[in-house]
Simulated assay, not measured.
Amino acid sequence: MTTISTSTAIGSSSSSSTSGSSSSADSSASKIASLTKQIASLNDELKDIAKDKSLTERQRTQKQESINAQIQMLQAQIKQLQQQESEKAQQKQEKKDVAEIKADGVNRPTGTNQINVYV
């Protein structure tokens, strides 16, 4: 009989708000890679369970459902990490856009350097 033991950290995703987003991107990428490896190993276990003749149909079904649930949780974690990365990239782009539209007082007036012309 095959014993299934996996360690998944549900809800333990940590986010750091540092100015260097490349380190957090690397961290997220490594977390995603790790989760993907876990999914691959669980898929291998599913294949092994399907081939295991010593299990009853009920045991096989229970183990398959358990592994499928674990895979779904891991996929949800991957989706959450990807969503966090896209939000960080969007915030970074918004900050960049705001910085580009800097008022210089000549062609783009500042609050203290405006000309109001009424005709």
Rank of each mutant, 00 (worst) to 15 (best):
T6H: 12
S13F: 01
K79P: 00
N113I: 13
T2I: 07
I67A: 04
K92I: 04
G111Q: 11
K37S: 15
S66D: 13
T3A: 08
T61N: 14
D97N: 05
Q114R: 15
T2F: 04
I32K: 09
Q80E: 14
M73N: 13
A103I: 07
Q114K: 15
L46P: 03
T110R: 14
S28G: 12
Q93G: 00
L74V: 03
S15T: 15
Q93L: 06
S27H: 00
Q83Y: 11
K63G: 01
E45D: 09
D44R: 13
T18L: 10
I39L: 02
S54D: 14
S17G: 01
T8Q: 14
N68C: 00
A25S: 10
L81Y: 05
T6K: 12
S15I: 15
E87N: 06
Q114C: 03
A29R: 15
A103P: 03
L74D: 01
K47C: 01
Q83V: 10
S17T: 03
Q72N: 03
R58S: 12
K51E: 14
Q80P: 06
N68S: 01
T36L: 08
T112K: 10
A50L: 14
K31V: 10
M1H: 12
D44C: 08
I101M: 11
S28I: 11
S13H: 06
N113L: 14
Q70Y: 11
S30T: 14
S15R: 15
I32Y: 05
Q82K: 14
S24Y: 06
D48T: 09
S22A: 04
K37P: 00
L55H: 03
S16M: 09
K51P: 07
T112R: 10
S16H: 07
P109V: 06
S54I: 05
Q59M: 12
S27L: 03
A40E: 15
L74N: 01
S27C: 01
S14F: 09
Q93I: 02
A103V: 09
A103S: 12
S24R: 06
I49K: 00
Q62E: 14
T110Y: 11
K102W: 08
N68T: 00
I71A: 02
S15L: 15
S34G: 14
T112N: 08
K102I: 02
V117W: 07
P109E: 07
S12F: 05
L55S: 06
T8F: 12
K88M: 04
I78R: 02
I4W: 09
T112S: 07
D48F: 05
Q64R: 09
I71F: 05
